[in-house]
């Protein structure tokens, strides 16, 4: 059960990605270019030893526009554990964003329904958008569908049509992909769902958080020793923070250093099927 800690770290990583993504999205907007926020935060000491690319980047124009127009970002979070209290996405995002984007108002709306398949979430997303007017939707998608063996073409159709609908309604979307657990790493269906989401994200030019790789990276670091303390929770916390820093830095640098428009998606290091 040592792997359970990975799940916690995932959320910190995701929060870091989201934070950096939002910052990148702001920078992408020509009108809004607060150069101060483009500088990635330096790594803390325990995180100096590594980095990885585990995010597919894409601009967040509606977030940038919202920030420019009203200094407020409304974030709608959906998915299995979107609102988990400690280590959950939204609290961390809100906290970090408020630090980075000083003077801005960050509103997060948690509407996660555990165990919900993408097809049901897709219907609910539209209602929630209609009621909450978010600038960004964070959609944790795929894990429940993979575990329930939902046909791939059905899942693909659902995710694609929802992304299109959100785009047509001026809402940015970030997909949070599958979780990594060693036990299911060998599973062909799980692998296919993971690949499918990546392909969709690439084709639709939406950001995807590669949670699988993030967690896999931590697992490898753990197995290699990593220099973490003996307590699992301490170890979890350290990995959590490092991963968030790597990701935030990678995205921020990628966005500001090379520009994001039309940039091809990055392939991550642990991309091969195990």
């Amino acid at each position: 059960m040592a792997r359970t800690g990975q799940i916690k770290r995932l959320h910190a990583a995701a929060a870091g990605i989201l934070t950096a993504s939002l910052v990148a999205g702001v920078a992408w907007s020509e009108e809004t270019a607060p150069s101060a926020v483009a500088v990635p935060a330096p790594y803390s000491t325990e995180c100096l030893g590594g980095s990885t690319e585990i995010v597919a980047e894409s601009p967040l124009p509606n977030v940038a526009a919202a920030l420019q127009r009203r200094r407020t970002i409304r974030i709608l979070a959906l998915g299995a554990s979107a609102g988990r209290r400690q280590g959950g996405f939204t609290h961390r995002i809100e906290r970090i964003l408020k630090q980075v984007l000083k003077g801005s108002n960050i509103v997060t709306i948690n509407r996660g329904v555990s165990g919900e398949l993408a097809a049901n979430a897709a219907l609910r997303i539209k209602n929630e958008v209609a009621m909450n007017n978010p600038d960004l939707v964070i959609w944790q998608v795929g894990t429940d569908d993979a575990l329930a063996f939902v046909p791939l073409e059905e899942l693909a159709g659902t995710v694609r049509s929802t992304i299109t609908w959100l785009r047509d309604h001026n809402v940015d979307v970030v997909l949070a992909g599958l979780q990594y657990v060693e036990r299911v790493a060998q599973d062909e269906n799980y692998y296919r769902v993971r690949e499918l989401l990546r392909e969709i994200a690439a084709k639709e030019h939406v950001m995807i958080i590669r949670r699988y790789e993030a967690m896999q990276f931590i697992a490898a670091a753990q197995e290699a020793g990593g220099g973490y303390g003996p307590d699992e929770f301490e170890r979890t916390g350290a990995g959590y923070n490092c991963l968030a820093q790597y990701l935030a830095s990678a995205i921020t640098l990628g966005a500001f250093g090379k520009g994001m428009s039309g940039r091809p998606l990055l392939r991550s290091q642990p991309d091969q099927k195990k």
Binding site: M1, R3, T4, Q6, I7, K8, A80, S81, R84, R85, Q86, G87, S114, G115, T143, L147, Q179, V181, R183, V184
Partner: peptide
């Protein structure tokens, strides 16, 4: 039994186990 912590995340149970 299945050595699969993913099951602890199912159905909003993660908060019970982690918090």
């Amino acid at each position: 039994l299945l050595d699969n912590p993913l099951l602890l995340e199912w159905h909003n149970a993660s908060s019970v186990f982690y918090d």
